[in-house]
Amino acid sequence: MASIETITGKLGARQGYIARLGAWAIEANLALGDMGVFFLSTLYWIFRWPGRRAISETFAQMYEMGTKSIPVVMIGGGFIGAVLAVETLPQFQEIGLASRVGSIIVISVVKQVGPILTAVMLAGRLGGAMTAELGTMRVTEQIDALRVMGADPVRTLVVPRVLACVIMTPILTLYSDAIGILGGWLVAVRVEGVRNYPFWHYAAQSTDLFTVNVGLIKAFFFGVVISTVACYKGFRCGNGAQGVGKACTEAFVTGFCLILLSNFILALGLNNLYNALYPNQPSVL
């Protein structure tokens, strides 16, 4: 029979777990609320007009985030398109529908792979850089210096980055889509000998403006997620090099999870919208 001490010990240990779980839940809630306030403050400054200097900084950030990201996005997109062709073509050939491979490549790239892949690449490339830059500014008291000089750090630092990321993510997604389709075409038509006309014919047949817009709408929201999370983690990073490193890792992991979560929610929402707009069409979202 268990002694009183063992039972109290077990209860104590359980209470410890429950207390830790409770503490974690409270902390998670506070962090979520804090991130919400940070996001609302960013929105406030965007709609209140952040000032000429913030806008000119936005263009500088667009160049930094957009133009300089084109190579990595193109390489990623191109290879994914090519791999899609390599993996799907044998299945289509087996059932004698090799000429229709273009449709599956285009649907996959435009709706899912393009936006998600671009977002993940940008979360790694831009998110990490933004968190590291803002985190270092926080650690070296530059963000405090802005506040002391009466310049709101959200207006000065966050608004240009969020605006630039939100504008550039859909544009980079278009690049990624185009190069992904080209990569698929290269493998299917140039290497595997699928005829050119049916490839493009079925590709065009399976895609409409709504499909392209789905990818762009997703990319827009991914841009919001990447930039807000990265800036927030930079602003709230711990002290020293370790604090900055930890913030960068957290920014990528949180950003990645939120990209997947928002992709799922957007797919559901856009699917319903598609059904409402085109009731007689089968949903392919």
């Binding site: 200097r53 270092t136 500014m137 008291e141 530059q142 210096a145 002391v148 000089m149 009466g150 310049a151």
Partner: peptide, 29 residues
């Protein structure tokens, strides 16, 4: 804050700006 100048322990100069832009920052603001 406009009436107070603050010299930070780590100087807190903005790394991405020149010395001139750093000193001009509060004036432009």
């Amino acid at each position: 804050r406009k009436k107070i100048g603050f010299l930070f322990q780590l100087s807190a100069l903005f790394d991405s700006m020149t010395v001139g832009d750093n000193v001009a920052f509060p004036l432009r603001e």
